[in-house]
Structures are given as C-alpha cells and as structure tokens.
C-alpha cells in the first residue's frame, strides 16, 4: 500500500516536471533573444541596445520556416518598405516573367517567378554567374542546390529553406496531385512546434 502511494507520488511529480518543461517549450518565442542565441556574447554592451528579433519579426506575416516571416508577402503588403538603392543613379530593375523548370522530372514543375525575385535582387545577382539568361541553357540539379549552389546560394541560407519543396515545385503535372504526400506540408498560419 505504502509502496503504491510512493509510486503514484513519483508519477505525479514527474508529470508536474514534464508539464513545466512543456509549458517552457510552448511559451518560448519563435525568435531567440540575442543574449541566448548562442552567437552573441551575453556580456557585450550591444545586447542592451540592439533590436531583438521578436520585436521586429513578430509583427510581420508569419511563416513556418526560416525567419518565420513570409518576406515577399510582407513586402507586398507594405508591412516593410526596404530601400531598393542607396545611390541615386542606380537603376532599379524589376522583371515580371515566370520560367517553368523541371519539365521532365517526377516532382511538380517548378515555377520560378522573376517578379518576386527582382523585388529583392538585381539581375546581376543571378545572371550570368549562377544561371545563363537564356531559358533552358542552365542544367539544374537538386543535388547542387542542396550543396549551396544555384538556387541554394540563397535558399537554405537566407531565403526560405529547402525543406519547403512545394513552394518551388508548385505546378502539378497532368493527373498529378498538386502536393504529393512526401514531405510534411504545414498549412500557412499554423504555429509550428519549435
């Protein structure tokens, strides 16, 4: 009798500890504060002065990966208005044309939108070192992309990560489900576990 009581007591305490841990995990923000991010020196005087990621990013359209911000949407909605040039004579180029890629593969076809990319970038950032300007002239390789070449120069490092397959592979082939069931697709707006 006494033994079973202490056992019940143990499990009750274990549950409390687990609940505490879980709540700590849930209440934790999507964005780590600078003094705990593992790269800032917590003793640096800058910690008190620099903007905290959560202060800025929590106000923008949420995402489920990367900075947890839909950067293009945020720009288009006017939540942010980043400068496009600092030199008055710089020509700001935005180009609106889609390119379909991966026409023969098994995954859905890739639709590359120039417009969203040139809202942020200039033509010279990709052409012609990463990609030739002529459609079909560059051979794409998912392996290279995963190694940080081609699209992987940015995607996986600063723009949305390579776990988000169907943001690029977005055009279903005839008879193909729009989203094959391979990777987990989290509906936008869902709060992901961290």
């Amino acid at each position: 009798m006494r033994e079973s009581t202490s056992q019940a007591d143990f499990w009750r305490r274990a549950l409390v500890v687990l609940a505490l841990l879980a709540s700590a995990g849930v209440s934790g923000s999507d964005w780590e504060s600078l003094n705990k991010d593992g790269i800032h020196d917590p003793r640096s005087p800058a910690i008190q002065q620099l903007q905290q990621p959560a202060d800025a990013l929590s106000k923008l359209t949420p995402d489920t990966a990367g900075n947890m911000v839909r950067w293009v949407q945020s720009l288009e909605k006017g939540e942010i208005n980043p400068r496009a040039n600092i030199r008055p004579d710089t020509k700001i180029r935005v180009y609106d044309s889609d390119v379909l890629l991966n026409l023969k593969g098994g995954m859905p076809i890739v639709r590359f939108p120039h417009r969203q990319h040139t809202l942020w970038l200039d033509c010279v950032n990709c052409h012609d070192q990463l990609f030739k300007a002529e459609a079909g002239a560059t051979k794409f390789s998912m392996l290279k992309i995963l190694e940080g070449e081609q699209c992987g120069v940015c995607h996986g490092a600063v723009s949305f990560p390579l776990t988000e397959c169907f943001r690029c592979h977005s055009v279903a082939r005839p008879g193909q489900a729009p989203r094959p069931s391979l990777p987990i697709a989290i509906p936008s707006g869902a709060v992901p576990p961290k």
């Binding site: 980043p82 040039n85 600092i86 710089t90 809202l119 970038l121």
Partner: peptide, 27 residues
C-alpha cells in the same frame, strides 16, 4: 569580438540588391 551581421534586421530596411549589387558584397 567577432562581428554578428543579422540578415533579418537589414532586410527589413534594405533589399538584397543594395548590398549585393550596389555595394558589391559577394553572396
């Protein structure tokens, strides 16, 4: 101390092309 460059902070204020095209930062 080493420098920390936060992309998130900068891209709220500047598009990629400012640093990576105008200023010549290689990617």
């Amino acid at each position: 101390r080493p420098v920390i460059f936060p992309h998130w902070f900068h891209r709220i204020r500047f598009r990629c092309k400012v640093c990576h095209a105008e200023l010549g930062f290689k990617m």
